[in-house]
């Protein structure tokens, strides 16, 4: 019995290898991206002393435009963030100010999390900027996954190399590792709670972790995910920030 499973696994593995890495990535892209999406999220940031939970509602259109409104805690409530192409603005209701974030500020962490503004700015599809290669197959959290190695095709990416574990059935990433040019592991992302939403599989829970830093990382949970909604165009304008 065992041998049979092994053989099957091996066959699947082989077919996996045979399956074009690009196709796999394409399938992931197809699965994950939509015309637009709306979701609410909870971000848990573990600081050195305490943990904070931030909730927000986000709208995104393709990869180029996104709009996030923070709902809680009270201090953050009403703060909005708008990204259009390569520009980022943050609006604060308490001061009624819109501040543009640029230059080295983009490299700062967002609200003390393990994500930088820049991480949130990356808007090119993986298939456009990375050359994927299937390097094997592993089982992660009981799910079989292709292991993909992505090498940068363009030079202006924060991470030269990525390693992705893609669920062989659902075509969602379950784990990702981000590497420096030298091959040093820098960050790790774990994706879980994969749910079927509007006919597509989607991981609703993500943990980001900066591997060079001590700490528990940042947890990101999405709820109320809706794809292909009617999002009014004005949402992605600076005027919407002040609404």
């Amino acid at each position: 019995m065992k041998t049979i499973i092994t053989i099957i696994a091996l066959l699947v593995g082989l077919t996996g290898n045979a399956q074009d890495a690009k196709t796999i990535l394409q399938k992931v892209d197809d699965n994950m991206s939509s015309k637009n999406r709306v979701f609410e999220s909870t971000m848990v940031i573990h600081g050195k002393r305490n943990s904070r939970t931030i909730t927000s509602r986000s709208y995104s259109e393709g990869e180029k435009q996104s709009f996030t409104e923070y709902l809680s805690p009270a201090r953050e409530q009403g703060t909005k963030m708008l990204k259009v192409n390569d520009q980022l603005w943050i609006y604060s209701p308490s001061t009624d100010r819109t501040i543009q974030i640029s230059g080295h500020m983009l490299r700062q962490s967002v609200m003390g999390s393990d994500l930088s503004y820049e991480d949130m700015m990356e808007d090119r599809k993986l298939t456009e900027v990375y050359e994927p290669k299937v390097t094997g197959e592993e089982t992660i959290e009981g799910r079989k996954a292709y292991v993909l190695e992505l090498t940068a095709l363009v030079s202006d990416l924060a991470y030269h190399k990525r390693k992705m574990w893609i669920d062989t059935e659902r075509f969602v990433p379950v784990k990702e590792e981000l590497y420096a040019k030298s091959g040093q592991l820098l960050k790790q992302t774990t994706l879980s709670d994969v749910q079927q939403i509007q006919g597509r599989w989607f991981p609703t829970s993500i943990v980001f972790k900066d591997m060079l830093k001590d700490g528990k990382g940042t947890e990101f949970k999405m709820t109320n995910i809706k794809f292909n909604q009617d999002i009014p165009a004005y949402i992605f304008t600076k005027a919407a920030l002040k609404k």
């Binding site: 940068a152 202006d156 990416l157 991470y159 030269h160 981000l178 420096a180 040019k181 060079l212």
Partner: peptide, 15 residues
Amino acid sequence: MLIRWRDKNGTFDAL
């Protein structure tokens, strides 16, 4: 020790 930096394109690197 490990040092980390970003090259002229902003790509992370560490050695």
